[in-house]
Design a binder for these strands. Structure first.
Lengths: 338, 338
DNA sequence: TCTGGCACTCGCGTACGAAGAGTGCCAGTG
DNA sequence: CACTGGCACTCTTCGTACGCGAGTGCCAGA
């Protein structure tokens, strides 16, 4: 196993490299951290760390840089989560509090995260499938045309057009609206199907077709997975990555445009706390030189969606994790209030 | 004034430069376009064009590249709009037709534009202020808490919370809902204020406070300018710009994140047709080396929002203008149908 | 007015050498 | 046995020099 000092050396390498963006050599290390040993000793430790695969050198005769494995060890064992300072917390809260609706909350969250971490921020809209129904509204637009509006407890609104098989009277409409709401309001989305399946039976034969159509549209809306939307921001921060550009930035931008990829990325993190996926741990190869720090957030105790940042593997993990965690917490509060 | 041949030379320079991305010299020009004159003659013409400020040379002893002024002349006088081919038109239509709601229409439009032009696409959501009200819905969430939902003819949905000064009964709510809709449904947003101003008078004294609150929230929503949302896509195409990166791409990404900037940019174009703003014609300095091609689109005859692309000044103007115009046309159709 | 010719400019790629940073290894020491 | 100082070696980086090629501007002539 690695001795205590070798771990310290690794930690020092990560910290210095993150700070300077340049391979770090043995001499610089002893100067900047008082490890109490000489460069030569550090060199021996470095050789050992390299054998184990925690660090590597870009070319012979350059300093060392951490590998993905090295960052992994650093994140798991050598560093904690750096809490936000009180002023920062206040700033976060102030910034989020001005939001007027869900879109605004998400938009502000993205900006905030991007600004705090100086990286690319990704925020998933509160998922439909994990939330509860606040209200279902039905509007008559034409004799045989309805609009279905679904409002969730997180403030999200979905609307769908419904073309009815037969004209549907105002009184039937009011009836359906009332029955629907009394059954599903406050219930979880996953419970809705079984709660409404016998609804058509309560109506006259001529209306049943329409009721069924409305219900199936509703159920469709509930499960619609591709409706998992997200918002990203701070892409300009990508330009700070390396100086070796197009090659690095291109695939990342492409990946970010593929919402499917991002959703899968966020979805994979099951951990209740902050999750970090480093470099090649990300399935998508465009993101092989980036790390993703993500966490769930929710209006109540339970997570209804994820948010996170995408940045170079060479990032300030403790600070980023702290920012992500803090933002998630406050967004949760805001959602619970609204 | 510039002779006919000199204009042809300018056109040839623009076309070649757009194609090759490299400064074009007199010899190459005579080889690729049969102008019927020798390189020496072309050189004289080039010297004249340079004196007039239409072209420039990056360094002595390099070929010429068009200036912003040169592109401007090209766009205004030397090139038309290249119409889309029938297969392309069909592809556009097919791609847009699958959309399920407004968000989806906008999202698809962005993808489509980005793909067609291989540049960054920007689509503004149909503006609230220029559309008409389809329906206003009021929901009671708590005794003194309402949700106001506004649905526009373009399918856009806005919701707002309303905290009432006093509890508001179900019957009053139904009353208000009915009166509100009978007055404003189908009317233009700009007409709404005068249509509802005397509404509180129709209610009992105890309810007037709430009615006023609801109305002012509604009016606020109507004029809320900062709610002018937009969606962008195709940012990965930025990496095709020049090979001189960070410097070029950075400010563009930053400008794109500032929705305010983009909205102003799109808003400035008053022309009913396709508008092109080239390089320094864009007020924002981050966009000084890009061109913006934009056009209005709408569900009826009238434009309710803008869409366009942002790309390098060195772009295929006729093709881009054709694509933008065609997409706008089809999006308008889709919106009118839904 | 156009053309061919010619000298000139300048950016670009390659080659070479010096400088500097960092390493690995080894012998010596507490 | 762990640590240290010393030293030779490797490799990148940077500056300079140089030749090539593309392109120009100008001029004399048709």
């Amino acid at each position: 196993m690695l001795s205590e000092r070798r771990l310290q050396v690794l930690r020092a390498i990560v910290q210095d490299y993150v700070g300077t963006e340049e391979p770090v050599g043995s001499k610089a290390l002893t100067e900047r951290h008082n490890l109490g040993v000489s460069p030569a000793t550090v060199r021996n430790d470095m050789a050992a760390l390299e054998d184990e695969g925690f660090i590597a050198q870009p070319h012979t005769s350059a300093g060392r840089i951490p590998t993905d494995k090295g960052y992994r060890l650093f994140v798991d064992k050598l560093a904690g989560v750096k809490p936000m300072s009180p002023p920062e917390r206040r700033a976060i809260q102030n910034f989020l509090e001005g939001a007027v609706d869900l879109d605004d909350v998400v938009a502000r969250t993205v900006r905030l995260l991007a600004q705090l971490t100086r990286q690319v921020a990704v925020v998933q809209y509160p998922s439909l499938t994990r939330s509860t129904v606040r209200h279902v509204e039905l509007l008559s637009l034409a004799p045989a045309r309805l609009m279905l509006v679904l409002i969730t407890d997180t403030g999200r609104v979905e609307q769908r057009m419904v073309d009815c098989p037969a004209p549907f009277g105002e009184s039937s409409l009011a009836d359906l609206r009332a029955r629907l709401n009394s059954r599903v309001a406050g219930r979880r989305f996953t419970d809705v199907p079984s709660l409404v399946e016998d609804l058509p039976e309560a109506f006259e034969a001529e209306d049943r077709g329409t009721v069924s159509t409305v219900l199936s549209t509703l159920l469709e809306t509930l499960v619609e997975e591709n409706e998992e939307r997200l918002m990203i921001g701070g892409t300009a921060n990508l330009t700070r990555f390396g100086h070796d550009f197009p090659l690095t930035i291109r695939p990342v931008l492409e990946a970010l445009e593929e919402q499917v990829v991002l959703l899968k990325l966020l979805g994979e993190a099951k951990d209740p706390g902050v999750t970090v996926r480093i470099g090649h741990e990300n399935a998508h190869e465009g993101l092989n030189s980036t790390s993703v720090v993500s966490v769930g957030y929710g209006s109540g105790g339970e997570a209804v969606a994820k948010l996170g940042v995408v940045g170079p593997t060479r990032m300030d993990y403790p600070g980023t994790m702290g920012a992500v965690r803090a933002v998630a917490r406050y967004v949760g509060q805001i959602l619970a209030e609204s």
